[in-house]
Nucleic acid binder design. Structure first.
Lengths: 334, 334
DNA sequence: AAAGTGCATACAAACGATTGCACTCGGAGG
DNA sequence: CCTCCGAGTGCAATCGTTTGTATGCACTTT
């Protein structure tokens, strides 16, 4: 690989002039600049990014911390982040934590070490104090999707409470009275909020909350499948089910069909997230759509603002951006 | 951020001693080493990776070039790459080209500039001369999934020809005689190979090839859907369809059902790739499974070998590893 | 007692870029 | 004729590491 000195030698100037010429600074005569350009082209020269980063104290790289890239929603977020990043000349490092806090810490330790200018975090949990600590050190961070409103993080998310409330309200307005709910991991606020929305919709419409209709998530593989089967096989079956995310809705769909009930004629099923797959099911799933791609892109924009503010020594006021969700009505609800 | 000199000052030694102590070199007394450790801990010091990379000429970072992270199979590959990378202390940069050669070139230009030690490429096409050029410069590269056997690349892939042949042979053995085929982009060898496998299976079993049963891919959104509907609505309907990837199988499933035929009673549908979703369909899809995760992990291992060989100045003999596929028999074939 | 040995440590030169400062040089103004 | 100016360029320091070489010192060896 050729370096700046090789170019300088070939063009018959000093390295500093090459640097100035190629980064379009003033103070270089047109004739010299052209000569340098040609020399650089001839040597197939491109500046060493590592050296530049060291000198400039900025890598133009950011990291995206994801719980799992196989989780359907995260590739969409990642897409948005990446496209926006490319537009801004920023590279993205993908960090997959597999929901494992040890791995997350490992990554963050690396990131602190001048790896990246900032980080977008989708792995926030109530106990993620190491992330708070990093933020307190002045490290630029934007949360996406999973956030906790109360602690002054910069974040992009949706109003899970409102969206769930609206969706369940829709079910009730269409005549459903016994609505089961499949919960997600109780650790995550997004699921707690969706559950709160569910309860609020019941209250709004004068329906009683029934603990027997709540399916808790154990995380185990077929657990939800059997719970749904049990719920719909014995006693008075619910006339609808609200799954707090689409994968759960898909499992529920299968379980309900497998006990001999029809969707939507006997039971309506409502999902959350609108993953690509949900439109391809039989029947296609009614669900709440989140603008994941746009959330990723916005998170990237905000992160860049933070980085620039930090560089310029200006203050930056973090805020939470709540994006609009949309209830996508398909064929799984009647 | 504290640097090595701060640690040196606090511990009352020189920077070089700190460096040696922390990287567990010999020639540092235990007492000094301990003092340095404590100083480092006290200052919350971690070595600046950028500076280290510059000095060492190695970043311990590799890039993964993907056509699209939203494509189901790539997150699996990426997972394998990442897990293996983490095990080896390597970081992965994710580069999403969106099948756009301009973006790909942009990335590769960056990568050349000492960004990364090597790259895993899933975007190879017959016309990808810029990738060949990079290889010829001595840049460590491993191809995954998409490869072209003839040009001496290091690669991890499956025997698409053999797998397709075996799968279609299975259909024929189960009594199917008129088997349609839904092709993928003709530009990519993987689809050409699967098509060759299909034809070979016909020949093996003494069946005639019928051009009328071939559905070409235009790439347009609903194109395949309508082509399948047309094929199954007029004239003698095929009794089976081999889709050269699962998303096409899913579309075909829908189209076939929508013209009033039942899968698998009237028509068998066979996919390729075994994406997660294929098990969740109604009926669950019979398909050829590729070990994507393992392919990613192996590609990472091979890349590391290449990098190490290059560093040590040793020769490295690239070879193509073909992994085993498996025909997963579910309910979409009778 | 002089020389040799080996360990622990410090010094300084890289790695490849950027940039403040100093220098040169031709022309304008006093 | 001297000074001043500004444009164009070069020198050298710097970013934070690693590492080859030199140094100092306490011992042993002859």
């Amino acid at each position: 690989m050729n370096n700046i000195k090789d170019v300088a030698r070939l063009a018959g100037v000093s390295a500093s002039t090459v640097s100035r010429a190629l980064s379009d600074k003033a103070c270089v005569s047109d004739e010299t600049r052209e000569r340098i350009r040609q020399a650089a082209a001839e040597l197939n020269y491109s500046p060493n990014v590592i050296a530049k980063s060291l000198k400039m104290g900025r890598t133009n790289t950011i990291a995206l911390l994801l719980p799992s890239i196989r989780n359907h929603i995260f590739p969409e977020i990642a897409s948005g982040v990446e496209d926006e990043a490319r537009r801004c000349g920023v590279t993205v490092i993908l960090c997959n934590t597999d929901e494992d806090e040890r791995i997350e810490k490992e990554y963050l330790a690396k990131l602190r070490a001048q790896w990246v200018d900032g980080v977008i975090v989708s792995t926030m949990k109530p106990g993620s104090d190491h992330i708070r600590k990093l933020r307190d050190e002045g490290f630029p961070i934007v949360l996406t999707s999973r956030y906790y409103g109360d602690d002054g993080f910069d974040a992009v998310a949706v109003d899970n409470f409102g969206a769930a409330r609206g969706a369940v309200d829709y079910l009730i307005k269409r005549g459903h009275k016994r609505i089961a709910v499949a919960l997600g991991s109780g650790e995550l606020n997004i699921y707690k909020d969706r559950f709160r929305g569910y309860r609020q919709a019941l209250t709004d419409n004068g329906l009683a909350f029934d603990e027997a209709l709540v399916l808790h998530d154990s995380g185990a593989a077929d657990d939800l499948y059997f719970k749904v089967q049990t719920l719909f096989s014995f006693g008075p079956a619910p006339d609808a089910l609200f799954a707090t995310n689409d994968p759960k809705a898909i499992i529920a769909l299968r379980a309900i069909r497998d006990v001999g009930l029809r969707v939507p004629q006997d039971v309506s099923v409502l999902g959350f997230d609108n993953i690509e797959l949900s439109a391809m099911l039989e029947p296609p799933l009614t669900t709440v759509s989140q603008p994941f791609y746009q959330m990723g892109a916005l998170a990237m924009k905000k992160l860049l603002c933070q980085i620039e503010a930090k560089e310029a020594g200006k203050p930056y006021r973090p805020r939470v951006n709540l994006m609009d969700t949309e209830l996508i009505i398909r064929k799984s609800t009647r």
